[in-house]
């Protein structure tokens, strides 16, 4: 199910402004890749180009190639809606649909894409909620509103919603930054479980988190505000944290930055 992503020479723009420049990297299947770097260096922006969410923003566009296995996501005959069905996303702040129950939130991706049949939906909802480690907490109140859960539960609900459509890749944009340490731990455990089936890319500001959950880490940096962000290096997480090949990475990780 999981697929590899190959990015080559990608530039990302907001209108005329070049936000990220010249990224080339490979994201391995069935592994966790973490993006770290200072605020404003374009990690999230770059992450959003991997499922064509970037172009939802007016003026958002890219140059370069993103290959999912051998398919170019930005080829002219590719439907961005289909790309997003294949590459799911979890956001920084939990965003369950406020008009929907827990059940409906998880089923939303399938229902809105035309899947019907109560039995099929029941199965997917249970499987996804189990997959997100939330089933035991909510199985008796599936018809209660999703917005009534705690922040950490809401985020796991959003993960369940994302995996319900069985994506090939799961992108996570600082999924724990709005959560307390206990909920964070729950999400990190979940990421560990999920990586046996999915290719996961996670943006995080928490370097301990990157060290704990990821197999590979990419460090992004920018020369100065107003300049585009760049990929400094990507390597095995162990190497990045112990013996990085670029000095800027070491400075950032050891807190001697800037």
């Amino acid at each position: 199910m999981a697929k590899r992503i190959d990015v080559s020479d990608l530039n990302v723009y907001y209108g005329q402004f070049k936000a990220v420049e010249g990224v080339t990297m490979t994201v391995e299947p069935r592994s966790v890749t973490a993006f770290i770097g200072p605020s404003g260096c374009g990690k999230s922006t770059f992450l959003r180009t991997l499922n064509r969410m970037h172009e939802v923003i007016p003026g958002g566009r890219v140059e370069g190639k993103v290959l999912l296995d051998d398919q170019d996501l930005y080829a002219s005959d590719v439907d961005p809606v289909a790309v997003r069905r294949t590459i799911g996303m979890v956001f920084q702040r939990p965003n369950p649909f406020p008009t929907m129950s827990i059940y409906d939130n998880v089923a939303a991706g399938l229902r809105l894409n035309g899947v019907k049949g109560r039995k099929k939906l029941d199965e997917v909802v249970e499987k996804s909620l189990r997959g997100a480690n939330l089933w035991n907490e909510v199985k008796d109140r599936l018809n209660k509103p999703g917005a009534g859960l705690s922040g950490g539960q809401q985020q796991r609900l959003c993960i369940a919603r994302a995996i319900a459509v069985e994506p090939q890749v799961l992108l996570m944009d600082e999924p724990c930054s709005a959560l307390d340490p206990i909920s964070t731990l729950a999400i990190e455990d979940l990421i560990n479980d999920l990586k046996s089936q999915y290719t996961i890319v996670i943006v995080t500001h928490n370097m301990q988190q990157a060290a704990r959950v990821s197999d590979r880490t990419a460090f992004f940096n920018l020369a100065a505000t107003g300049k585009p962000g760049k990929l400094v290096e990507i390597d095995d997480t162990h190497r990045i944290f112990n013996n990085p090949s670029v000095k800027a990475t070491e400075d950032y990780i050891s807190g001697r930055f800037g």
Binding site: N51, M53, V56, V81, A82, V83, R84, R85, T86, G88, M89, F91, R93, N95, P96, F97, P98, A108, G109, L112, N113, C158, R161, A162, V165
Partner: peptide, 14 residues
């Protein structure tokens, strides 16, 4: 909130 629109797009909803 725009986040709800994005959440829906990210599920592959037109």
């Amino acid at each position: 909130p725009n986040e709800l629109r994005e959440a829906s797009y990210a599920l592959g909803v037109p």
